[in-house]
């Protein structure tokens, strides 16, 4: 069993958990993820490492309530335990001195991208951060991200905070302004990552995305997480989750994310009926 030592609600339906997992904290690297299972009847779902502390023996994850598992997870309190917490999984981010790196985060993607940006900054890269959300109440960690970047641009789709619009607009302007950009890293909903990749493609700037297909084991055993990159089938959990965004078959990814739409709805409604809706 793995104990939740701290929890915090960062934004509407976005929560942070700190979990006791010393062995994982010791080995964790930016860009890796864990697979969790709440209890005996729970599903295994992947969550990216948002932070970790080897000394304290803790790992931090940030998740958004979207379906049954994340709904149930949000009901847990500090002191509660979850059955399984497996990691660190996946290939760590490639951290090197690239020059200027633009980190683009969409929604809950702000959390997983933070350790990557931090590591890149430490390597001596110039970090430009674009942080986007649908609306002000979904934004979090603005200060934290500002502290690990040289410049921070905030956008909201509805204009309730920062610049009105989507993240690809400032991204495109940056590239058009002639500013030297050596690498782009985009993490967020797949549609946002896809458009970031499409935006950077004409400029020939290497764009890394962290794919989020449905997973089961997270260790290369089932093939559920397969994606097509450069025409080759890859297992996201062991070959990724980060890939070259210009090579990803986005239509395949979005089709595969819809496999269980009906079941996901049924499962969520069942849990909501049982536990009562909560904010």
């Amino acid at each position: 069993m793995f104990r939740i030592t701290y929890r915090e609600t960062l934004a509407t339906k976005i929560h942070l958990f700190k979990i006791e997992a010393a062995a994982i904290a010791r080995k964790a690297l930016a860009g890796q993820f864990v697979v969790i299972r709440i209890d005996e009847k729970g599903e295994r779902i992947p969550l990216t490492l948002a932070d970790w502390d080897a000394k304290e023996g803790s790992v931090t994850v940030v998740f958004m309530e979207v379906g049954a598992t994340t709904f149930r997870l949000a009901l847990l309190k500090a002191g509660d335990c979850i059955a399984d917490f497996v990691g660190p999984l996946g290939v760590p981010s490639h951290i090197d001195k690239f020059g200027t790196v633009v980190c683009v985060a969409g929604g809950v993607g702000a959390a997983p991208i933070a350790p990557i940006a931090k590591a890149l900054k430490k390597k001596g890269n110039e970090i430009i951060f674009i942080l986007g959300a649908r609306s002000k109440d979904l934004l979090f960690w603005e200060d934290k991200l500002r502290s690990i970047s040289h410049r921070l641009i905030v956008t909201t789709d509805d204009g309730t905070y920062g610049r009105k619009g989507v993240v690809t607009e400032p991204l495109k302007e940056l590239l058009e302004s002639g500013e030297k950009v050596d690498r782009v890293i985009a993490i967020g909903p797949s549609i946002m990552m896809k458009f970031c990749a499409l935006t950077t493609q004409p400029f020939g700037v290497k764009t890394i995305v962290s794919l989020n297909p449905i997973m089961v084991d997270g260790t290369g055993m089932c093939g559920c997480c397969r994606v097509s990159v450069g025409g080759v089938t890859k297992f996201s959990c062991v070959d990724g989750p980060e890939f070259d965004g210009h090579q990803v078959d986005w239509d395949l990814l979005s089709a595969r994310l819809r496999i269980y739409l009906d079941e996901e709805k049924c499962s969520l409604e069942q849990w909501q009926a049982r536990m009562g809706k909560h904010s």
């Binding site: 089932c222 093939g223 559920c224 397969r226 089709a255 595969r256 819809r258 496999i259």
Partner: peptide
């Protein structure tokens, strides 16, 4: 990789 195609393991 079409939807509905599984590995036996999955």
């Amino acid at each position: 990789n079409l939807n509905g195609i599984y590995s036996a393991n999955e």
